[in-house]
Design a binder for these strands. Sequence first.
DNA 1: TATCTAATAGACCCACTAAGTCCATTTGGA
DNA 2: TCCAAATGGACTTAGTGGGTCTATTAGATA
Lengths: 137, 137
Amino acid sequence: MRLKRGSEYGIHGVLYLAMQPKDKTTLLNEVAEVLKIPKSYLSKIFQTYTKAGILKSFRGAKRGFALTRPPEKITLKELVESFEGKLLVEGCSLGRDDCPQNKHCSISKRLRKAQSAMDEVLEKTSLKDLMMNFKKI
Amino acid sequence: MRLKRGSEYGIHGVLYLAMQPKDKTTLLNEVAEVLKIPKSYLSKIFQTYTKAGILKSFRGAKRGFALTRPPEKITLKELVESFEGKLLVEGCSLGRDDCPQNKHCSISKRLRKAQSAMDEVLEKTSLKDLMMNFKKI
DNA sequence: TATCTAATAGACCCACTAAGTCCATTTGGA
DNA sequence: TCCAAATGGACTTAGTGGGTCTATTAGATA
């Protein structure tokens, strides 16, 4: 179970922003070049994060991207979910909404439990935690 | 994060086998019809399980499928993994094996931790657990 | 007010996977 | 040797992932 490449690029990109001086805005171009990510693709990803309220973008003179919140208030969960979609699905985890078992299906129950175990770890991890032992590039 | 349809069909199919009298072999056709799964597709899925050592198949007169082990010895994890692939990946969870951080990447570490939390729940769940509150169809 | 540069929106593309289908072959007991 | 079902492999079709390209817009400054 790998994350999508977009998640990878995105998380690295956001981490790069987090390591910049506070209140500085950074150009997409810089991030893309340093991290060797196709610029037009990273552009899409950052747009997604912007809509998700994780990044804010600026045009004009003081242009570029920056975090909307301090790193300790951005969780790995929201980063992952904004690209992968919700980890924890409602209803039948198997996608069979016409299942006779419906809500009471023991399979769905266990799968949901497994997913929420994963969810919890991601929720507890902040961008700051990730920065801690991430060497400066 | 939904499972693939193949996993869904497969888990339901195997659960159906588990609920049959011990040592009985059941025809693919029966399973497919009762569970309303395309027969040719379920055939592929059961073949996968057979290769994975979860099911055994018979030809000739006493034909059909059966579990290789008692339900309490078959875990949800192996059912899921035989269709979805390993949940827990080695190396960079982000797929960047050329990452300068390599093994020490804090992102990968947390993602692996999240995945193994999920893994653990699936590992602890046996087919028997699933049977417990699964009403007879 | 015109200009410049980068962010934004959206259309488009290719490769690959998911989800099945179909058919020819094999198996093993009656 | 016949039968019915399991097997293997080729094939299809729809959808997603992973991008690219271009035109438009925003906003500080000259």
